[in-house]
Computed example of a mutant assay.
Amino acid sequence: MIPYHGHHSAKHFIRNKPDRFGYKMWMMCSADGYPCNFSNYGGKDENRKLPLGPQVVMDMWQPVVNKYSRHIFDNFFTSYALMVDLTKQGFRACGTIRENRTGKCPLLPKKEIEKKERGSYDYRSDNMVLCARWNDNSIVTDASNYYGVSPIQKVNRWVKNEGKRRVEQPYLISMYNKGMGGVDVCDKMLSTYRPRMRSKKWWWNIFSQLLNLSIVASYRFYQHVNPDSRVTH
């Protein structure tokens, strides 16, 4: 979200965001927060051919050259149909997925998984997309067109009446956890030194956001080129 409290038709209100009022910006970032691509959301597009989440993913990936790099996204974007389309285009992807977007995948119901011990999982695959459901703090459902369940990982979890112990975790969920959070990292860096100026111009906040974004990108690029440097953001 780009903070903005004035009047404009593109302004949004999202209750659970740190900045609830402002312009909505879609972003694609690396795991360390480097901004790879972005697009401002102006509202409903009558020419859109796909649901909003998949359409954003397709638009964000237009400049991607290396299709063999992994791509992670959350359940707002993920759907079975999207995974099939990405498979046909050669993209490797993984993401959490909502119950009504699994393409009627016959996974065990959440209530049944909850009754099993922590670390229990169930999965199904049609040789193109794999969906897995895992019993963690809450039930986690992931879908991937590249990662599988094996090799099974071991993670530390607190188990009731037993204390901390190692439980099983499907491989695709482990890889999702390693790659997730890049947009949040970028957002945190953007909010640290956000330019502030009183102005009645609606475009100023977007302009200052782009300046701020270029600083974050420059810093991450500098860290990549100079891994031993102690220069801070």
Rank of each mutant, 00 (worst) to 15 (best):
S191L: 03
R230H: 07
S229R: 08
V65Y: 01
Y146S: 08
D136T: 07
K201V: 09
V159R: 08
A10H: 10
N177C: 13
D122V: 12
R101G: 00
T87C: 09
T78C: 12
Y147F: 08
M60R: 05
I206D: 10
G22K: 02
N127Q: 02
Y4G: 10
K104G: 02
Q62W: 05
R133W: 08
V65T: 14
L130N: 07
K154T: 06
K154N: 07
S69K: 00
M83E: 00
R165Q: 09
A217L: 05
M60P: 06
S214V: 04
G42Y: 05
T192P: 00
R118W: 12
N145A: 15
P106W: 14
C36I: 13
R101M: 04
R98E: 07
C105N: 14
S138F: 04
R198V: 10
I139Q: 11
K115E: 10
V65M: 12
Y80Q: 12
Y41F: 00
Y146D: 12
P170L: 00
G148N: 14
S69D: 04
G33I: 07
D136V: 11
H12G: 07
Y68H: 04
K200F: 01
F221A: 13
D184E: 13
P54V: 12
G95C: 12
N37Q: 12
G182F: 13
Y193L: 03
E168N: 13
R20S: 06
R118I: 14
K88Q: 08
R48K: 11
Y4C: 05
A217S: 08
I2A: 07
D228R: 06
G95E: 06
R15L: 03
V225I: 14
P3K: 15
P51K: 06
G181S: 15
Y123V: 10
K178Q: 10
V56L: 03
I113Y: 08
S39I: 04
E114T: 15
